[in-house]
Amino acid sequence: MVEIVRTNDLVLVGFLQSLLENANIPVLVADMHMSALEGMIGAFPRRFLVPDDDAAQARRLIREAGLGGELRHE
């Protein structure tokens, strides 16, 4: 698994998860349940993890959606 995005933006979390799942790219949104501990203040970013084999396609989809600036460095 490789981390491709890290964000506190819950709208972006939902959009990216939908984008990747609709492209049949398995995605794990890590730290999603930290919100219960933090009180929904956005202190802990959510991390998007995809299989190594799907990382290039996931990055391409995110760039094509105009969100290339959200990508972690390769």
Rank of each mutant, 00 (worst) to 15 (best):
L16E: 06
Q57A: 15
A65E: 10
V13K: 05
I25Y: 14
D9L: 03
D9W: 05
R59C: 12
N24E: 14
D52Q: 07
N22V: 09
G68C: 01
G42N: 05
R59I: 00
V5I: 11
V11Y: 07
D53Q: 08
M40I: 08
E70V: 03
P51W: 13
L71R: 00
L16M: 09
R6P: 14
V50H: 05
L37W: 05
L71Y: 00
H33I: 08
P51S: 08
R6D: 09
I25T: 14
M32L: 10
V5F: 06
E21S: 15
N24P: 13
N24W: 12
V5T: 07
R63Q: 14
A23R: 10
G66N: 10
L61T: 01
L71A: 07
V27M: 00
F44T: 15
A55E: 00
V5M: 10
H73P: 15
M1R: 13
V11I: 10
I4H: 05
R6C: 11
G42K: 03
S35C: 15
R46W: 11
G68E: 00
L67M: 04
V2Q: 06
L71I: 03
G42F: 03
H73L: 15
V2T: 02
G66C: 13
L67Y: 03
L16A: 12
H73W: 15
L10G: 06
P51R: 05
Q57E: 14
G14Q: 12
A55M: 01
G68S: 05
R63V: 06
L10T: 11
R6L: 12
L12R: 10
E64W: 00
S18G: 03
M32D: 04
M32R: 07
E3K: 08
D53E: 10
I41Y: 11
V27C: 05
A56E: 09
E21H: 13
V50D: 01
E21M: 15
A56T: 13
V13W: 07
V27S: 02
M40G: 06
A56G: 08
I4F: 14
P45R: 11
Q57S: 14
R59S: 08
G66A: 12
V13S: 00
N22C: 13
E38I: 04
L49R: 12
D31S: 13
M32Y: 08
F48P: 07
V11Q: 10
M40F: 11
A36N: 12
N8I: 03
